[in-house]
């Protein structure tokens, strides 16, 4: 019972975060925030930036940011899209891990201790 309560609290806080960035009030449309979260179907040069955020964030440069701003995206919009890109990649890894954990528990008959 204790373990179930702990799991539920993670789930609720996790979904609160995802819902806030994707469906909460923002300067960029929900569709574009979802695209940044998915790291797919974004116009260039925004797609190149979000790809870097998702897979090599340490390689992001001032120029990467400036090029996107020169294409008419405001700093507030960029803030939202970068957050969505980062959370999206982290979420895919987390969901993969939680699916594997559920499989291991199901196959092995393990219980939390």
């Amino acid at each position: 019972m204790k373990t179930e309560k702990m799991t539920e609290s993670y789930k609720q806080l996790y979904h609160n975060l995802i819902n806030s960035i994707l469906k909460g009030r923002g300067d960029r449309s929900q569709e574009q925030r979802q695209a940044a979260f998915n790291n797919a179907n974004l116009p260039q040069p925004l797609q190149a930036l979000i790809e870097k955020v998702a897979h090599h964030a340490y390689k992001v440069t001032d120029n990467d940011i400036n090029v996107v701003k020169q294409n008419g995206i405001s700093e507030d919009q960029l803030f939202e899209l970068i957050v969505c890109g980062a959370v999206g990649q982290a979420s895919r890894q987390y969901e993969s891990a939680m699916t594997a954990l559920a499989e291991a528990i199901k196959e092995g008959g393990y219980h939390a201790s």
Binding site: A54, A57, Y58, A86, Y94
Partner: peptide
């Protein structure tokens, strides 16, 4: 859950 939290923060810190 820790990995999730820091996979976000690391990306935001560098971006």
């Amino acid at each position: 859950a820790i990995c999730f939290a820091f996979n976000i923060t690391n990306r935001l810190a560098d971006a």
